[in-house]
Amino acid sequence: MTGLAERLIITSGRLCAWLVVFAPVSVVAVIAYAAMEVRDRPADISYVAPIAMTVVIAAVAAAVGGGLGAALAFASAELGQPRLARVVRMCIAVLRSVPPLVLGWLAWLIIMPTTYSLGAKTPPQTWVLVAAAITVLAVLVVPPSFAAVLHALDRVPEEIRAAAAASGASRVQVAFQVLVPLVERTLWAAIAMGFARAAGEATAVTLVFIAGAFFQWPLAGVALGTSLTGAAAAGSSGDLLLLGQAAAAGLVLTSFGFVAVLVANRFDRRIAWT
């Protein structure tokens, strides 16, 4: 290979590296530009309630899903029998394969009619929708949280477990008194990353809230991702007002994500969030 060809390849490699870095940055730049374009025009949609609702739903879902994922990781890696561990890992792998689109639809099929048949048919019943959305988002957060904590447990040297066991500690004591403090920061990072994941999820949550519309339930204060989807879809010919407003909502959503990722990095920079 000639020096020129080598230099050409290295230069194109560098360009590709910068493209990877600038892909998310350019997304933020574009939506910031779109939001600025419509800043002087009166807003058709208020995003105050959706922002509050998104924070609440995402925080609860991240805590529940992140905690459940961590508990399952501990149970399968440290406490359970190898056969149970295999079953848990297989179930998590299957759960990871279920797209949010299908989870949202399943929520419609399972949670909504069940609640409806239990008598929750008189509006307002927004709490049912919120509970359904939290359930779906928590389920989405479980697999990555499981993988993150499992990865952290893998990084703990075997000698620490052996030393604790040699001191007479049982498996439960090793898990709770030795390993939990060691992977605690990863758990907090997983919850923070779970918040970013849950706050940004739109497909499943939108389907859950649309299910509420079928029952004539109020949709005031639906999650930000849902509002954004609706605003982007409701623009009129040649008028980018709603798209610009959706971009403003997107900026808020992205800022939530950035804060969550910063917090996660503060706890554990090597978290394997896959």
């Binding site: 990877v20 870095v21 892909a23 998310p24 350019s26 997304v27 933020v28 574009v30 939506i31 530009y33 779109a34 990353m193 970013a196 994941r197 706050a199 940004g200 999820e201 739109a202 991702g225 954004l228 989807t229 982007a232 980018l240 798209l243 959706a246 971009a247 997107g250 959503l253 992205t254 994500g257 950035f258 969550a260 990722v261 996660a264 990095n265 978290i271 969030w273």
Partner: peptide, 20 residues
């Protein structure tokens, strides 16, 4: 760190930028 940092930008926001 791109994989982790990009999690801050949800797909729905990416879609909005592509629409713009």
């Amino acid at each position: 760190s791109a994989g982790r940092s990009a999690r801050a930008v949800p797909p729905v926001v990416t879609g909005c930028a592509v629409a713009v």
